[in-house]
Design a protein around this nucleic acid. Structure first.
Lengths: 245, 245
DNA sequence: AAAAATAAACGTAAAAATGACGTTTGTAGT
DNA sequence: ACTACAAACGTCATTTTTACGTTTATTTTT
């Protein structure tokens, strides 16, 4: 067996956006459409993740940051490199081979997959030239390449990670209510949580800071707003090695 | 800026081996030595991780599995793809450029890094043709490339993961004592744990199964042997979504 | 202006888990 | 039989969790 030393590499980004109103975890996807110029036959008609090849002078993180900025205009969002996908048969589907430029080189493209966490309110899709749309992670459209697998693995990583790290707050606005935090957990994990116990547990955390502010423009009793303090969290964590297997 | 689409890709393996006797978490490293034929000057003299280029027909996981098998003869060990390293300046050091074959292609090698977890008793280094040695993760020798960084990031991932997942048992023999488990935690995390509380906590887990066996050949009271049941663990975990942020 | 509706917020008691210790037990070597 | 010592068990106060019931503040309806 001879080794294949020249391979192609790219970065793909799963952009998770939580919608506080619909209480839904969404993924940002780009429309892909291609029809034959001669026969008008539809060759490709689906959605894909946003991604790009790695530039010569970039780190992998740089590429991911650039891709998100080009898509949403945002920088500084939570970003996680979660897995590399490099199966030899990644691009065996004819429609994907039609789509990509240099098929002879691209028959094997290894992609470093990242996911981003943000709130859908942070993104203005209208000013974007791409045909990008939000889709609920539990109700994805037909996807190109192996992007469905990539999304599901990102989602799985997120599920596990949100149980032991405070990344849930990355999906919410800076100021949030206790119930909004509960909604995110319920939505992501697909579970029901007792509000009274959850509320007490969260309020007792030193890194959940009550603000001198309440909700405005709601038609019921306005809720207290809180923020998450990364600084306090890091201090607390250093002292508590809690083995919870 | 023009994109660089042709990049080189490999897999590097951090083989963690826990030594039950010395209570030390070790890494398996390979000796690298090269002297100039004309001047006898030592060009390269350090240690590196084991790794290899990805074969044409392999998945990334396959490559990692193959690398471990060639190094240790072992298959089926716990394996985790934890990060891709692809900084443009990864191989700027002259000695590394001397070492690798096709420097013009290899100036940027993206590597997919894996770590393996096993017990040092499972490996027989003598029958191995490579000059491989165990080094305590807290006392590493001089390392080539960016392999020190890769090891430290693998170690960090392991530290975090062992707090919330039962991967600690991958470092022990199938049959172990409670105190051995405690020793692994203490060694990896660098903490002290109260034996009486730890013992109670672990014994109460349904997935820690007491065997009809005790230690043999010890010069004190022989300890009860236990095993870990992945099957029971998975069942328990499905029912307990414990948010512990 | 009072009443109704409703989400937000607070309260309580039993059970389970944790933290900080003291005590007993079983085996090998003397 | 005695001793050394790690293994194993026990206790109690405190904290956290679970499973509920109740009150409060605000908007909308009457």
């Amino acid at each position: 067996m001879e080794s294949e030393k020249i391979l192609n590499i790219s970065v793909d980004c799963v952009v998770f956006g939580y919608d506080t109103n619909t209480k839904s975890l969404n993924v940002l996807l780009i429309k892909r459409y291609l029809a034959s110029k001669t026969t008008n036959e539809v060759l490709v008609d689906d959605f894909v993740l946003t991604g790009y090849h790695v530039y010569k002078t970039e780190t992998l993180d740089d590429t991911a940051t650039r891709v998100l900025k080009e898509l949403t205009g945002l920088t500084g969002q939570y970003k996680k490199q979660f897995k590399a996908f490099g199966d030899p048969d990644r691009l065996l589907h004819p429609k994907d081979i039609i789509w990509i430029e240099n098929a002879e080189f691209n028959l094997r493209t290894t992609t470093i997959a990242y996911y981003f966490l943000l709130n859908t309110e942070d993104v203005d899709l209208e000013t974007n030239k791409n045909d990008a749309r939000w889709f609920p992670v539990n109700n994805l459209p037909e996807l190109g390449f192996d992007h469905e697998q990539i999304i599901l693995e990102a989602y799985e990583d997120l599920k596990v990670k949100c149980l032991s790290e405070p990344i849930i707050f990355e999906l919410l606005p800076d100021k949030f209510t206790i119930n909004e935090v509960q909604d995110v957990y319920q939505s992501i994990l697909g579970i029901e949580i007792d509000n009274r116990n959850f509320r007490r547990k969260l309020i007792n955390k030193k890194y959940i800071i009550a603000l001198d502010e309440k909700q405005v423009g709601v038609s019921k009793k306005p809720a207290q707003l809180y923020m998450f303090s990364r600084e306090v969290y890091d201090k607390v964590f250093q002292k508590n090695y809690l083995i919870s297997i």
